[in-house]
Design a protein around this nucleic acid. Structure first.
Length: 451
RNA sequence: GGGGAGGUGGCCGAGCGGUUGAAGGCGCUCGCCUGCUAAGCGAGUGUAGUGUGUUAAGCACUACCGAGGGUUCGAAUCCCUCCCUCUCCGCCA
């Protein structure tokens, strides 16, 4: 790939790799400039100093090891007992020195590693520059036209309460705030949505459906970069190193960690519907009403493993695959090209999909589609056999397709009718057993057994 | 959770303190040969790090035989801890 000048004013060499110490070592100024478009400070000089210290230690200890190996080998060949003893004595002192230098090298390595793990991915050159979400770049509005209401559209929490579709009180009673119980036809609507989305992505978009574990080792979260930095947003086991997944991206992306895949299996597409567990500590107090921001929700997630040269195109396709869902549901939505300052930690380029919700009067983020380039692949050590026969990091991408609660919010608010009921979007009718309207649910449950 | 067996290269499978990065076989790659997709012959065939080299090829060294510690001049080989797989028992959806 040819080098080119980017809008950021530095040369882009194709797939240079993030958190690759070699890249930092060889292009320190460029690295600093690129990473700081995220509106963060990185101590590049400190990193370089640590790196050269580490390498000096390695060189030093390896020389001694070579000496010892040669000497020990000689011991085995030496027949004369006296000569033998002399050699052993000669080698005996080296062990301590090696142990000491090894420890120092390991220490330097670990320190460097911690620093590198704490540095986010480099934004792609085409990502708009900006300091925070206010500078994200919205694309044209798409999908169904904005609906004109001849009555005042209600927010979903009012609709849900009136139709008894969500029981917030009892959910809070058993699980605390930011929990909810879906009831009756709304629970079924979620199930229908999941079914339909999975069908679309497997049948129309060529994904393989998977069901991953919902609890994983810490190192898995390091791989996708939720750890070490965002531990406080995750639920975890108090005795073991097991964490509940905040998104299916975590287990699914890590499927092939520590592996070298055959080049010809790529691209690999996986889709998974899973619950997502998030502590949402950072946003305490925000979005407290309704089911927009909750501790647990279902999400259909798309994950791709691709060759580096394909990831930019694959991101565009991924976005369209996610948009297709909003499109078919007849919703009004827009794309947001996230600016450098608002990019997620591991992402090089991200498009958000936002659906308009007329009840709460806001754009709801229902999907975040990201190209992680080789950032996660590097952290999780996911490689493929490149054309030249050598192992190379592949690129990973992920995006929601889509997140369930917010899609349900959008459906409830957009499909509400003046009598208070909710119309079922046409594509979901077959998945709802032919039902076209959602009305009031029984307050406790059906009063009679119907068998 | 308790008892027994075991975890070696892409796969199978030796090795059980020294010249083994690892026999042998299979697979794969390249070459030769054979008048056809079979057989045979020869060579090659892990990953990472450090140094050197033009951020190349190559070369040298270091590390890796489930993971992490230990013993030793020297460990795939001995010791300890943990993990995983198989299996018998218990428990359970």
């Amino acid at each position: 790939m040819a080098a080119r000048l980017t809008r950021h004013g530095f040369v882009w060499r194709g797939h240079q790799e993030m958190n690759d110490i070699r890249y930092i070592r060889e292009n320190p100024a460029e690295f600093k400039q690129r990473i700081e478009t995220r509106n963060i400070e990185v101590d590049v000089d400190g990193i370089l100093a640590l790196d050269s210290q580490r390498r000096a230690l390695i060189t030093q200890v390896e020389e001694i090891k070579a000496e010892r190996n040669a000497g020990s080998k000689l011991v085995g060949k030496t027949k004369d007992p006296e000569e033998r003893q002399a050699l052993i004595a000669q080698m005996a002192g080296l062990g301590d020195k090696i142990t000491e230098l090894d420890a120092q090298a390991a220490e330097a390595e670990a320190t460097l590693n911690d620093i590198l793990l704490g540095i986010p991915n480099l934004p792609d050159p085409e990502v708009p520059l900006g300091k925070d979400e206010a500078e994200n770049v919205p694309g044209p509005e798409r999908g169904a036209p904005l609906r004109e209401f001849d009555f005042e559209p209600k927010p979903h929490w009012d609709l849900a309460e009136e139709l008894e579709l969500i029981d917030f009180e009892r959910a809070v009673k058993i699980a605390g705030s930011r929990n909810y119980i879906l009831r009756g036809d709304l629970a079924r609507l979620q199930r229908a949505l999941i079914d339909w989305m999975l069908d679309v992505h497997t049948q129309r978009h060529g994904y393989l459906e998977v069901q991953p574990p919902y609890q994983v080792f810490g190192e898995v979260l390091v791989g996708t970069s939720q750890l070490p930095k965002f531990a406080d947003t995750l639920f975890r086991d108090i005795e073991e190193d097991k964490w509940l997944i905040p998104t299916a991206e975590v287990p699914v992306t890590n499927f092939y960690r520590e592996e070298i895949l055959d080049g010809d299996v790529l691209p690999v597409y996986h889709v998974a519907a899973t619950p997502c567990f998030r502590r949402e500590k950072v946003s305490a107090g925000r979005d407290v009403r309704g089911i927009k921001r909750v501790f647990q929700f279902m999400k259909v997630e798309l994950v791709k493993f691709v060759k580096p040269e394909d990831s930019a195109n694959e991101l565009e396709r991924l976005v369209e695959e996610a948009c297709y869902i909003a499109e078919e549901l007849g919703l009004h939505y827009r794309l947001l090209d996230l600016c450098t300052g608002d990019l997620g930690f591991g992402a090089a380029h991200t498009y958000d999909i936002e659906i308009w919700a007329p009840g709460c009067q806001e754009w709801l983020e229902v999907s975040s589609c990201s190209n992680m380039r080789d950032y996660q692949a590097r952290r999780a050590n996911i490689r493929y056999r490149a054309e030249n026969g050598k192992p190379a990091y592949l690129h990973t991408l992920n995006g929601s397709g889509l997140a369930l609660p917010r899609v349900m919010i959008a459906i409830m608010e957009n499909y509400q009718q003046e009598d208070g009921s909710i119309e079922v979007p046409a594509v979901l009718v077959p998945y709802m057993g032919g039902r076209t309207v959602i009305g009031k649910q029984p307050p406790i449950g059906p009063s009679k057994h119907t068998v």
